[in-house]
Design a protein around this nucleic acid. Sequence first.
DNA 1: TTAAAAAACAGGAAAAACCCTGATCATTTT
DNA 2: AAAATGATCAGGGTTTTTCCTGTTTTTTAA
Lengths: 214, 214
Amino acid sequence: MKKHAVIIVDDHSLMAQALAGLVNEFDEYKVLDTFKNGAELIAGFNAGTKDPEIILLDVKMPVMDGFKTMEWLHTNKPNVQVIVISMEDHENTVLKMLKLGAKGFLLKDTEPDILKSALDTVLTNGFFHTQLVADALLHQSKTGDVIKDDALKETELEFLKLVCQEKTYNEIADIMCKHPKTIDGYRQDLFDKLGVRNRIGLVLYAIRNDLVKL
Amino acid sequence: MKKHAVIIVDDHSLMAQALAGLVNEFDEYKVLDTFKNGAELIAGFNAGTKDPEIILLDVKMPVMDGFKTMEWLHTNKPNVQVIVISMEDHENTVLKMLKLGAKGFLLKDTEPDILKSALDTVLTNGFFHTQLVADALLHQSKTGDVIKDDALKETELEFLKLVCQEKTYNEIADIMCKHPKTIDGYRQDLFDKLGVRNRIGLVLYAIRNDLVKL
DNA sequence: TTAAAAAACAGGAAAAACCCTGATCATTTT
DNA sequence: AAAATGATCAGGGTTTTTCCTGTTTTTTAA
């Protein structure tokens, strides 16, 4: 019997290797290779790695993160089914990945047999939905405007980073060489845009969306 | 040949199962069992699970986290060697775990052969040190006062969590059924204790030390 | 039991954050 | 050229936060 080829992309070696062992235990699947990030994956393809049927993709990775990798895969390997495996269950992440073409979304605390059925289902149905994904899609309207964090301008981003450094708005005005009232404008715009009440909301948003490193 | 018994405690099923597969591939080791958290581990012991030689312990877990579990193990199973396996490389976490009696500290992005040598070394030497651990010990003096986040009292912790929910101090006073001035006292104490200037510092501290979930 | 320590409460004040509205200037769009 | 857009700046007011310095009450320990 020909086994379905799987590639794993995860910067946590233990996780990647271990995941590989798990997949290899499923009779119908075989791990072709594992990579530490998107860049390595692409390098692998260029070096002759054959296309798998399924890629298990982590979100948080250095060098080339899950989103960028997903984007690349969707345009360059449209026939490869991608299942995202993430630590966090942020709805934004789920939605972003689905929009980028992911066929499934699993959390790292998923039971192994769910992984098995995710693999099976993605191959037969082309997608695998958990409750998590359903919820994310349901709340889409509510969080719809929050998703596009691409909408954050450079100035707003810089402002946000400074807020996350315990700076006061006056200090931020100095650093950014802008009038304090301008800074107050940034603040107001971001409050509206992100739907938060105060600076803490900004910090939480920035952290949740990896706009700042801890 | 008799194999060394290992138990894995990690709330991420995929990680736990996969890790088990990995350890089972090492000739000299055998996974006795896996548990989702400290409470389940203890329940397992009570239900007759035999003591392993080594426990691989995750830090972030619901119900009974790594620290509490480590504490319990150190007093109740002093002969079991514990290797902590963590996502984050916070020095505080490393030091805390070492103080609680952990014999090794690995990150989840460790290479599998490092895990192998960690297992071997812990059995023969009684500990396994990586550069990470060495660094943590070196900086111990500097961060000495920050380490003891045990010093955070229950009220302070509750206050901190509410701060991380965009609440104002007056709202927090209502929720905690305390006078606003009392809350202001908590705030001041925490500012001094943690060395921060404003609420944002509190939020960052809470997040960095996993006191709140994102 | 009494002394000491810790937790809760208080007043007052300055700084910072928050909110709304509108003006000015430069750049794009039509 | 005129209109629309977007970024910057402004005024002025309310609320919240931050920072002092204390007092009272409760808990803990000697």
